[in-house]
Nucleic acid binder design. Structure first.
Lengths: 195, 195, 195, 195
DNA sequence: CATGAATGAGAGTTCATTCAT
DNA sequence: GATGAATGAACTCTCATTCAT
């Protein structure tokens, strides 16, 4: 029955994801999950001891899927600047699609649950992304596509701007042109000195 | 008695501020406020109909104080780059002092309460800061301190990075050197082409 | 100041009357009265210790005005059947004008506050009305307008029907023709045997 | 478990009935019910969302039982006048047993909750009773027991008098002889012309 | 006399969590 | 494993009533 159990657990996590996207983290109750899943109150407790545990599993699932997406991109043979542009385009898409977005809940969760820095998945994801962008920029510089003296700094700058845009999207709302403007500014910073 | 009332209201707002800083927005109950203030349940309702109304007043107070701080800086006769450096230093101070910081609660509040863009104080503050920084950069360029072709873009970039850092501070924790690194990167972007 | 006091008390009673008409008896709070009167919380308690005391004064006022109305009618020189018809017309008017009617509150009050029979004003009013109608019928019989062997019984029957109609008006709503039908039935009972 | 649920629900409704009889409608709180039933606060909310919903169920139960009583009477082979007398006797019994009587609460409920005429159960019950009495009178006339030119009018008159007596019972108290007197008057109206 | 701020009791309602079946 | 009834704690909000000014 371990097979069946695993399936049910996955079903709960997937359904819960939708609930967290809709209501954030703190406002979600076990009752919400129970109702969304159509299972019994007691049944849910067999798998998760509370919304925090459940949410951690949701984030785990989210992270795995994110990796898949990255993996998909890597396969192509494209220039570094193409890949960076693709990455930014993907980010833009996410920024503009609040409705399918877990970030509000994630922020709420990490506001509340202070996690030791080393294990903090948010930090790990951020650092991983910085490293990838850094590599892309370095490759771009080598390929003569970019000019940049501090690839690591530029990568971090990009990621902080994206994070700033994310929070802006969640708290004030952003438009497509607001994102485009920032992306353009970033790209110009990488090519500006070429002229 | 209006005098006394106003004083009490102010006392409540100030006390509540501490509670919001400690617990964020959503977790704060009227009971928390009542206990922190040492007043009666009903007494609080004489002044505020709920945590939302109270929180809005806390934010209002916060905004006024922020204005005062800005006002303090303006008085000095310093070069644009000095003022910008001062501004960034102030931002750094805030970033590193989570404990005295309302931003977590503010974000939670605006996650929940979607405010029409035009009236959104978060947006207004952001835009105002961008405009000030833009002016500083332009002044710096004229004074020969900075080199920058897109003052507005640079100003926005600075603000988004600061916002990214803010969220990083709240969700993962940041160190002084992490802030310094980003500030340095930004300042280099403004002077780098001088050489 | 006794003069001023009396005036203020009267003002409160009159204003409260409107509140009781609108909300019944049990739902009215001291706060409602205070707000309707535009006076201070404490001020109201100087005159009335609670809604029950206040409501009793409202009923007292109502009774006095009712007497005045009766007094007005008595002055005319009209046949007994005219006076009875007039009385029934007045009752009909009241039945159809819920909005200006205290009866709902009165019933609620006497549901709750069991008053010794002898002192019960509701009983006193009912009995008084029965006596008047009885006299009218007797006079009508003597004048050859009515035929009736049991004037007292007929009078009571009329009053109980009116009370039944009153409760119907408050709980289900009645139409003009429903009242007319019952009045007609009553009047036919008094003249039917003439033929 | 649906079986057990239904039983518990029934138990609550029956227990609540007693509370409503004792305290009327408006004064009954969910807490009162909880204490009377000996169940938990939250437990009650599993079955009823508030006193209004609960009271509607109490009334429904009451109506079903009333139907049963009627059904019991129909079985006998008795003359129309016997049945009418039996009906009036039953009414008299109810009028004199305030303590076991829900009418006070029912009136309070319908004072507050204005129900569309067509669906108003009070009206439906009243009209149904009128129709039954009308049929009885007509049957009595055919059987030569009664004399009555307007059976419908007489039936309505009876019901309004009974309603008047009911309200008198609740607000002033009535004695057995007061009821007898009215019943006698009514019966005389039906046979008086025989002589 | 009059005011209105302040208190505290109490009602309504919702959920996390448990446990017998 | 799974169910869902049951519990009780916690929170929101409203008022009657008092009392210093």
């Amino acid at each position: 029955m371990s097979e069946k159990s695993a399936q049910k657990k996955k079903y709960i996590v997937e359904t819960a994801r939708g609930v967290f996207i809709e209501k954030g983290y703190k406002d979600v109750t076990m009752k919400d999950i129970v109702e969304a899943c159509g299972i019994s109150r007691g049944g849910l407790y067999l798998y998760f001891s509370g919304t925090d545990e459940l949410f951690m599993d949701v984030m785990k699932m989210e992270a795995e899927e994110a990796d898949d997406v990255f993996a998909g991109k890597v396969g192509q043979d494209a220039t570094p600047s193409d890949i960076l542009a693709l990455f930014l385009k993907e980010q833009k898409r996410e920024l503009l699609h609040n409705r399918n977005n877990l970030s509000m809940a994630v922020y709420e969760y990490f506001f509340q649950n202070k996690v030791p820095k080393k294990e903090n998945p948010l930090k790990q994801q951020f650092d991983a992304a910085v490293r990838i962008i850094e590599k892309l920029i370095e490759a771009g510089v080598e390929a003569g596509e970019f000019y940049c003296e501090d690839a690591k700094g530029a990568a971090r700058n990009i990621m902080y701007v994206l994070e700033g845009l994310k929070i802006a999207a969640q708290t004030r709302g952003i438009t497509e042109e607001m994102v485009d403007r920032e992306v353009l500014y970033i790209m110009q910073g990488l090519v500006i000195d070429e002229e």
